[in-house]
Structures are given as C-alpha cells and as structure tokens.
Amino acid sequence: MTSDNSSPAGPRAVPTTPQEALEWVRSRFGPPRNTDGSPALLQVLEFDLGYLVYATYATRGAPVDANGRPLPAQPGGSSVVVAKETGTVSTLPNYPPQQAIALYRKQQHRRDASED
C-alpha cells in the first residue's frame, strides 16, 4: 500500500469531490492502457471512506488466439483509493470495485486496531 499527501510545494488540500480525487491519481500514476495501447477509461466511485479510482478496459479489439478465442488479460494493474479524511493515496489489486472497497475497509480496520 502506498501513501502520499504532499507535493514538492508542501501538503495539499484533501480532495473533496470525485473529480479532485481523479486529478490526484492522474498526477501520481501513469495512465492505464488497453491492449492496443490506447488509454483506458478511468472511473471514480465515491464511498464512505474515500474515492476508488479504477480503470475500465476495452474488450473490443482484445487479442485472440488462432481460433478466435480471447487471450487472457495481462497480469497486473491497480485500483487506487484516495482517503476522504487525509488524502492518503493507497494502491489495491485490480479487483472489481466492491471487492476493492471491501479490501480497503479491511486494511483500514487492521490499521486502526494496531494503533490501539
């Protein structure tokens, strides 16, 4: 998990909208790419603890084998959460949105329990 709430000019204000969270993520990470090299679309899902930013990848033009069957996706990729309270940026595995949010909540619960 990665976190950062600063810039070379010092601490930045915490994002208060999904669009601001998206801009934070864009300023810290390279753009995700579809298999053809074109940019993948970034989505933002607001939830109680933060903003989940994740890529949606095009299925059209996906690589296929000699028989026309789709090839498996390349491994890797991440989803990102920007915490509402602190602006902390955390990376998560590229899970479906609700599963990524559940994992983030679990990680936060463990972190909070270890601080007690």
Score class of each variant (00 low, 15 high):
35 T>S: 13
30 G>F: 09
17 T>S: 15
20 E>V: 06
41 L>W: 07
15 P>A: 13
18 P>F: 03
10 G>I: 14
39 P>N: 14
22 L>N: 02
30 G>T: 10
33 R>E: 14
28 R>C: 09
41 L>E: 14
43 Q>Y: 07
41 L>Y: 07
23 E>L: 10
13 A>L: 08
46 E>G: 11
34 N>M: 11
16 T>S: 12
23 E>N: 06
15 P>C: 04
40 A>I: 14
31 P>F: 15
20 E>Y: 10
48 D>F: 00
13 A>Y: 06
38 S>G: 07
26 R>H: 06
44 V>Q: 04
31 P>I: 15
29 F>R: 03
38 S>K: 09
23 E>V: 10
21 A>W: 01
46 E>Y: 02
33 R>H: 11
47 F>Q: 03
12 R>D: 03
15 P>L: 00
34 N>V: 12
35 T>V: 08
14 V>Y: 03
11 P>D: 15
11 P>L: 12
22 L>M: 14
44 V>M: 07
12 R>C: 06
31 P>R: 15
33 R>L: 13
37 G>Q: 11
16 T>V: 12
12 R>K: 11
25 V>K: 00
15 P>K: 01
19 Q>E: 13
10 G>Y: 14
28 R>G: 07
39 P>E: 12
47 F>S: 03
36 D>K: 08
37 G>S: 04
11 P>A: 12
46 E>P: 07
47 F>M: 08
38 S>A: 03
19 Q>G: 07
19 Q>V: 13
42 L>V: 06
49 L>Y: 00
45 L>G: 01
18 P>A: 00
47 F>L: 04
27 S>R: 03
37 G>H: 03
21 A>V: 02
28 R>F: 08
23 E>S: 01
33 R>V: 14
19 Q>W: 14
46 E>R: 09
25 V>Q: 00
33 R>M: 13
16 T>H: 15
50 G>H: 01
48 D>K: 00
31 P>V: 15
20 E>A: 15
21 A>L: 05
30 G>E: 07
34 N>T: 11
50 G>D: 02
17 T>V: 14
